[in-house]
Nucleic acid binder design. Structure first.
Length: 313
DNA sequence: CATCGATGTTTAA
DNA sequence: TAAACCTCGATGC
């Protein structure tokens, strides 16, 4: 789950549940004890996402959380917490809670299970953070330094709009790289929020050969890629899931392609057997658009997927 | 019960 | 390029 869309959902959820309310912060696992003490008893003013970073402003301090590959936040509490979803790596959903309250009116949380790095608690609910790659409190200087090395985030544009300065930054960043566009688009200094699934799916939809050098990608294709990523990330943030392939996609209609997902366990995990991606994890099967065999190879330690028929220089 | 893998990033070699 | 790190569910023996 944790590509940029997840972090924006997370920031929204923080905004709704915690912002402006005095919270208690602990570290049941014991690995965030000092930071928790620093944040506890105060009221966060703002939660924002920038790419894959969650940044929660508490006075001049900023709580930085990066979920990495398998970090996750889970939420429990009264009915206002019911709609709060677990965000991050897949976790089994907790059973329905029967809220009980202490004398001070605060809900009594269940005992922390497993390695809970941070628990944040407000009167009507709490959230547990497990497995983050980063969890620390930044001062304003450290915050500025972090922001300075992040590229533009397509989700930091108003919905339905392309912000020229962000797109221009993307163009400039690509023009400065000689690595492949596949490597560049995963570089958080070039564009923030894109992970392995959006890389594969955006380059497929934009019809770009992932091996094209970033600085050789024609301007029109750079702009089209930004537009594609903006649309895909926006949809992912709205739906809470990465679904780049839709059953009514006209390309599917043309070929009468079968969109059922036969990967082992996929149907069980997703609750539906309908395939969600064009090329991601579909190596060795016919492309649903052109029929060529979808390719996969290791690139800088990550798996790259593409269709050699649809994606050209 | 051991091993593997995952939508990620940093550090060492 | 490889290993380390953060966690836990799935898979295999």
């Amino acid at each position: 789950m944790p590509e940029g869309h997840t972090l924006h959902r997370l920031a929204d959820q923080f905004q709704r549940l915690f912002i402006g309310r005095s919270w208690r912060v602990t570290s049941p696992q014991g690995r965030f004890t000092a930071g928790a003490a620093q944040l506890s008893g105060r009221a966060p003013e703002r939660a924002e996402a920038w790419g894959k970073q969650l940044l929660v402003h508490v006075g001049a301090d900023i709580w930085q959380v990066h979920l990495g590959l398998y970090g996750a936040f889970s939420f429990r509490g009264d009915t206002s917490f019911d709609a709060a979803e677990t965000l991050g790596a897949p976790r089994t959903a907790a059973a329905q809670l029967k809220p009980e309250y202490a004398d001070d009116g605060w809900i009594i949380p269940v005992a922390a299970v497993g390695a809970v790095r941070a628990r944040i608690h407000v009167p009507n609910g709490w959230a547990d953070l497990r497995g983050p790659a980063r969890c620390r409190v930044l001062n304003p200087m450290q915050y500025e330094a972090l922001i300075a090395r992040l590229g533009p985030d397509p989700l930091r544009q108003p919905p339905g709009e392309i912000r020229e300065p962000l797109l221009e930054q993307f163009r400039v960043n690509l023009a400065r790289r000689r690595v492949s566009i596949a490597a560049a688009v995963m570089d958080q200094a070039v564009i923030a929020g894109v992970g392995n699934i959006y890389r594969a799916e955006s380059l497929f939809v934009a019809g770009i050969d992932p091996h094209t050098p970033a600085n050789e990608l024609p301007g029109a294709r750079v702009d089209a890629l930004w537009q594609t990523l903006t649309d895909q990330l926006r949809t992912g943030a709205a739906e809470g899931i990465i679904r780049t392939l839709r059953e009514n996609d006209p390309y599917l209609g043309l070929r009468g392609a079968d969109v059922h997902d036969y990967r082992a366990g996929a149907a069980v995990r997703s609750g539906a057997a309908v395939r969600r991606h064009w090329v991601y994890q579909h190596q060795g099967t016919p492309c649903l658009r052109c029929g060529e065999t979808v390719q996969m190879r290791q690139l800088q330690g990550r798996r790259l997927y593409w269709c050699p028929g649809c994606q050209v220089r």
